[in-house]
Design a binder for these strands. Sequence first.
DNA 1: GACATCATGGGATACCATGGGAATTCATGG
DNA 2: CCATGAATTCCCATGGTATCCCATGATGTC
Lengths: 156, 156
Amino acid sequence: MQAQTPFLGTFRNKVDRKGRVSVPAPFRQVLAGESFQGVVCFLSHKVEAIEGCGMGFMSELSESVADMDLFSDNHQDLASSLFADAHPLAWDSGGRIQLPPELMDVAGITEEAAFVGMGKTFRIWEPKAFSTYQGERRSQARQKGLSLPLRRAKEE
Amino acid sequence: MQAQTPFLGTFRNKVDRKGRVSVPAPFRQVLAGESFQGVVCFLSHKVEAIEGCGMGFMSELSESVADMDLFSDNHQDLASSLFADAHPLAWDSGGRIQLPPELMDVAGITEEAAFVGMGKTFRIWEPKAFSTYQGERRSQARQKGLSLPLRRAKEE
DNA sequence: GACATCATGGGATACCATGGGAATTCATGG
DNA sequence: CCATGAATTCCCATGGTATCCCATGATGTC
């Protein structure tokens, strides 16, 4: 199975009064080959934003968790953290999802949302909060001297 | 065989005086392709909640147990705890199941039930008990630094 | 300039969850 | 074996909301 095209770029879209927002077209294209046409969202434990991915990614996680002994503590902890809080959100014919109010509230999203590609996943931020975070991240990266070990994409 | 769509999300539904409760529509959709239209429920041995899955998952467990030596202690213990106490619950045309009183009693479920996706299975909690459990789990996950080795989903 | 795509706005409809009662089935007792 | 009561299953109705569908303007590409 080929490596998934990564989520790239940052997009800023409006959120309407029903909590609907367009998933950016390039992100929809990343997931075009999946059977579930939508995204899975859940609250980040690291930042005040929403984490997003495709259902395929979630199914991979499910298989990984399932490799563990059924009913073991590891299985239970991971399942509770990953799956219980996940919201599968199908997009409509126009490519919009409806954000759950509880995710919007914690991320502080009201009128706009910033979709931020993170490779295999993406994040949905309140745009100003993201600008603040981005500034901090860039400063950290410059101070530490960012580097990344590269490996070839595996094919089967 | 492709990975099953995981049970995701948490839903809170009312339990009526007959012990009926709606299985959330997304959970019903996960099991839509199975011949037995319902769920299998049994008491958790780890937490005070009800464990739920589809009949297909139960069949897989049955195969796993059958791989063990027949009449061995392991076989007997697992069979006793998994199959003897399992309740197959067909849902009606509206998607409701009727919870056995003995499962409701142990889980402390009276007026509402929280359906909690766990990937290949799900749990049914008394909502307040689940909130308490969830708070504890999150605290533990942050302290331990949760991580999961990822592997690709296998296809046949 | 034309066309296609994307994002946005709005409204109608179908689905979901909930409530209730009737009919059927099952277990029990005589 | 039959009758009866309890429990389960089946069916109908309803309100709310999520989903679906349509329209339009803006933007990018050819």
